[in-house]
């Protein structure tokens, strides 16, 4: 399904993501990497110090959609596959891969690139490349 090119809302949304990232670092000294933050909330819970603030950040993420809907009255568009097998496999790959690779789109793609970290630049190029391959196979080879 086609989506419209929306550079302005993309820039504004990206700016807000950046602002949130800066607030978390300036206030608490933490990197806004979602996969790491979620990892702190799952066993073995070895980083007791990171636990409460990670929990508050995730609660904030979960509140964002209700707050957005309340403030704007708009329901953001959402189109995804209803194939349960695809969703479970995709979820497992995203969770396991991001944790193994020490970060996802936020930790590597935004925070890491902003620090000009070689590790994050390699990671970002790798997951974008793999994402292009996955979508190519899904849409143009297997015709999903």
């Amino acid at each position: 399904m086609e989506t419209a090119f929306t550079p302005v809302s993309a820039l504004i949304g990206g700016g807000l993501i950046g602002l949130a990232t800066v607030i978390l670092m300036a206030g608490n000294g933490r990197i806004a990497g979602i996969s790491s933050i979620v990892g702190h909330l799952l066993p073995p819970l070895k980083d007791r110090f990171a636990l409460p603030q990670s929990a508050f950040f995730v609660v904030g993420l979960l509140l964002a959609l209700p707050v957005y809907k309340f403030a704007t009255g708009a329901v953001p568009p959402h189109v995804m596959t209803d194939n349960a097998v695809v969703l479970v496999v995709a979820g497992l790959l995203v969770g396991y891969g991001a944790a193994r690779g020490s970060g996802c789109t936020s930790g590597h793609g935004v925070c890491g690139i902003s620090r000009l970290s070689a590790r994050s630049i390699v990671a970002t190029l790798t997951f974008m490349g793999a994402g292009v391959v996955a979508v190519f196979l899904l849409r143009h080879v297997f015709g999903g």
Partner: peptide, 17 residues
């Protein structure tokens, strides 16, 4: 790890955040 993450990202269209 990043390659595995990327494959899932493309397949589902979702990253963690």
């Amino acid at each position: 790890g990043s390659a595995i993450f990327g494959l899932g990202w493309g397949l589902g269209g979702f990253c963690p955040g």
